[in-house]
Design a protein around this nucleic acid. Structure first.
Lengths: 300, 300
DNA sequence: GCTCAGCCATACCCTGGAGGTATCATGGAG
DNA sequence: CTCCATGATACCTCCAGGGTATGGCTGAGC
């Protein structure tokens, strides 16, 4: 399969008419018909139902269409970004973060760094794995994540460990309790983020696995708030780092776990062996203050 | 560019030796060299630095490598999933939503529908535009968004209009006021969602534009909560639908706007001309109750 | 310092496959 | 019932992907 197959397929899926699609693609209808047939052979499924007045997408075809579009979008985005990167000769300080660390002190770090003159901050939502890759590639300069990753080119520093809490729908049998993992495992679980992996989701799964517990992952969500929305919808429960409870929402209660050792670290990643730039030194100083505040209980 | 270019590139990037890479790819070295050159011409950047003993990835090449790998992974995953789906014969009820409608009553709708036996709900975060496309393609059955879109195949029903509020960093000069758009336009603005467009972001931009006001878009964020995190970081302010204020977070205050007519509709989209299925009838009934509750003030 | 080997790039060539035209079959609209 | 729109198949052309041959460059080894 080649990208042209996906390009042809997507146009055909939009037009639902090979003749019109061929016109849009500046080619004639017979080769387009063959290319779609070839794609269907390679996929091993019918993507279209043929009719005398055009085609309809099968359910499989609809599914394939979404993903094909995403692939083509990502290809275009990658080309654009690669070209921009090739041209760029700017110096800036990039911060990567997983969303679940953005409810605590990280905004304060950003606020502090923004007061420095001549610093151009960029903020990027990235998984911890993506942060490692982005650090190595030079796209960010510091990252805040949740996973420990051993990489020869990156040093990680655990800032602090944060208790994991359970987010439950209001009225849940475990509301008001301090449940064990075993008690939690009896209920459907909502995992976040769904993609990309590995992520905090895998940390949570690993937690249950290490306790010899099976969980029923009812659904996955990309956004933390969508996961909370699903909890509010009584689809299941989810586990979140403590700082997430600062954002209260209707329909949800948070409970501490019985086991106080169940925590998630906030981990700071930097490139290894790099003398800290002045802005990195400033960031380190602000971080020290923030961590000390947390230790001393000035901030939860 | 075709997938084979990405495939060839990734193997070369791993081997850093064209001769060895060609062997792995079961082809000879000269055509591989040409294909990589062709890719570099199309990208418009050098991905490798050549040496007498092999090649090295440039910084741009490293960046490209990550994304190329992701694209190839997604292609493989899509093929696998498509094949699996072709074998599966399931019926389900799909709900699409923009995140900013998931803080109000939508969780109650989901909770209500889930009580029905034999209904398999799928929930998908989609922009309103994506919802239209998904409805037409049959991927979802009902959608909740913010934009009015005229499409012959989709009927839209405005459930209610929701006031727009401003989210300000604590200590902001406008805190405690009921500002006008003009007053707000003087401050940097954070827009969400960044992509894909059009979205609520465009509604907000259109609002300022119609009042003849220019805004300084300081940054864009995909997640609403990331946008709020940026507000908490004092990077700027943002505008949100009223129901978002139910999720309180540190460092942010919400203020009503002077102009009460500045609202954002919650819009329900369905396929046009389709007799409602039993599950759709049930969804409509639950929606009616929810909207009536809102009108009568039982829920904000 | 010289030689050789490893490696990438270029020149030239061949052929398989992408895209073309011609045409057939089918079924729905009028 | 007829005609037209549409997709599929047969046959054809030609170009681009992949082949071999070879040259140029540079570093390792003696």
């Amino acid at each position: 399969m080649e990208l042209r197959h996906l390009r042809y397929f997507c146009v055909v899926a939009e037009e639902l008419n090979l003749t019109c699609a061929a016109e849009r693609l500046h080619m004639s209808q017979p080769p387009l018909s063959r290319q779609i047939k070839q794609l269907e052979r390679e996929v091993g499924a019918d993507l279209f139902e043929r009719g005398p007045r055009g085609l309809h997408l099968t359910a499989t075809g609809q599914f394939f269409q979404q993903h094909a579009l995403q692939i083509l979008e990502k290809v275009d985005a990658t080309l654009d970004a690669t070209r921009r990167m090739a041209r760029s000769k700017r110096v800036m300080f990039g911060i990567g973060f997983v969303p679940s660390v953005f409810y605590g002190q990280l905004p304060l770090l950003v606020r502090g760094l923004r007061q420095k003159d001549n610093v151009e901050l960029t903020l990027a939502e990235l998984t911890t794995v993506q942060q490692i890759q982005a650090l190595k590639a030079g796209r960010i300069d510091i990252g805040f994540g949740r996973l420990r990753i051993d990489d020869p080119d990156v040093e990680q520093e655990a800032l602090f460990d944060e208790p994991i809490m359970a987010a439950l729908p209001v009225g849940h049998p475990l509301e008001g309790t301090t449940p064990t993992l075993e008690e939690l495992a009896a209920y459907p679980l909502i995992l976040f983020p769904a993609k990309p992996r590995p992520s905090l989701a895998d940390t949570i799964l690993g937690l249950f696995r290490r306790h010899g517990l099976k969980v029923n992952v009812m659904q996955e969500a990309n956004e933390l708030q969508t996961a909370l929305g699903l909890v509010a919808s009584d689809i299941g429960i989810t586990l979140v780092p403590e700082q997430v409870k600062r954002v209260q929402r209707d329909g949800i209660v948070y409970v501490y776990l019985a086991d106080k050792n169940i925590t998630s670290p906030v981990i700071c990643s930097r490139r290894k062996g790099e003398a800290p730039s002045p802005i990195m030194q400033e960031a380190n100083a602000i971080l020290e203050v923030l961590v000390e505040n947390r230790r001393s209980g000035r901030y939860p």
